Computed example of a mutant assay.
Amino acid sequence: MSGVAWRKRWRVPERYRTRSTARPEGGGRTAGWDAPAPIRQWPLLVVLATTLAGLLLTLADFRVGLLVVGCGLLAGAALRAWLPAVGMLAVRSRFTDIVTYGLLGTVVVLLTLMAEPSPWLEVPFLNDILRFSVD
């Protein structure tokens, strides 16, 4: 069977084809076409650079490094909330992005503050839950 005949035979019907994909709200460029790519995507690069710096800091001090990673995610939530266009930092709807970045950043920061040994933050009911589940 030739390639042309095969393509005609297995063509997807028109009603099932995607005509266009909606861009996320705020997914536009933060700078014009004439600006270099890093300048157009600066919000994403800020979050990625902060996260990378935090991961490198974990080599020296575990808690400080993870606090920087959590703060990077919280900064992503703040940028997504306040800027009208954030480029590739916009993945889903604005609300979903803010909740996702904010929740993940908060969880990372809280778990880092509660890490053993000698936690910086103690939450009494979590100790009770842990003791109840282990016993």
Rank of each mutant, 00 (worst) to 15 (best):
R19T: 06
G72M: 03
V99S: 09
T30F: 10
A49K: 00
R11H: 05
L121D: 12
R29L: 15
G65W: 00
G27R: 07
F95R: 15
L111G: 14
D34I: 07
E116Y: 10
T96Q: 12
G76E: 06
P119E: 08
V47P: 01
G65D: 01
W33D: 14
T18A: 09
V68M: 04
W10R: 12
G65P: 00
S20R: 14
V4N: 09
N127Y: 14
L44H: 01
R63A: 08
D61Q: 14
L66T: 02
A5M: 02
C71W: 01
V123T: 08
G32P: 11
R92F: 14
R23L: 14
A31Q: 14
A35R: 12
A75W: 03
P119G: 04
I98T: 02
T50N: 04
G105L: 02
L52T: 11
D61I: 00
D34E: 11
V91P: 01
I39Q: 10
Y101P: 00
A5E: 09
Y101H: 09
P38E: 08
G70F: 00
T51C: 08
E116P: 08
L103R: 03
L83V: 04
L45H: 08
F62I: 04
P124G: 15
V91E: 06
T112L: 02
T50S: 14
P13H: 07
A90T: 13
S118R: 13
L126F: 14
V108L: 03
V109I: 13
R29Q: 14
A90K: 14
A35N: 10
A37D: 11
W42H: 09
V12D: 09
G102N: 03
E25Y: 08
L130Q: 15
A22M: 02
V109W: 04
G26I: 12
L44V: 08
R7L: 13
P36E: 05
L57C: 05
L113M: 05
M114Q: 13
L55R: 02
G70N: 03
R63Y: 06
R7C: 04
G72D: 06
P24I: 07
V47M: 08
Y16W: 13
E14Q: 02
A81M: 09
E14F: 00
E25R: 12
G70L: 00
A78S: 07
V4E: 14
T18N: 04
T18C: 10
E122L: 12
A77M: 09
R40Q: 15
T112F: 01
I98S: 13
R80H: 05
P84D: 13
Q41D: 15
W10I: 02
G32Q: 05
W42G: 10
L57E: 05
W82N: 06
R17P: 03
L113P: 02
L104M: 13
T100S: 12
R29V: 04
W10V: 12
G70D: 04
A53C: 01
A75L: 12
E116I: 04
A35P: 00
Y16N: 06
R63W: 03
G27Q: 09
L56P: 00
L56D: 11
G54F: 00
L55H: 05
V69G: 11
M88C: 06
R19G: 03
P117A: 07
R19Q: 11
G32K: 07
I39H: 05
I39S: 07
T112I: 02
W6P: 00
R94E: 12
T96K: 06
L74F: 01
G102P: 01
A81H: 07
V12I: 15
V99I: 10
I98E: 12
W120M: 13
L44S: 11
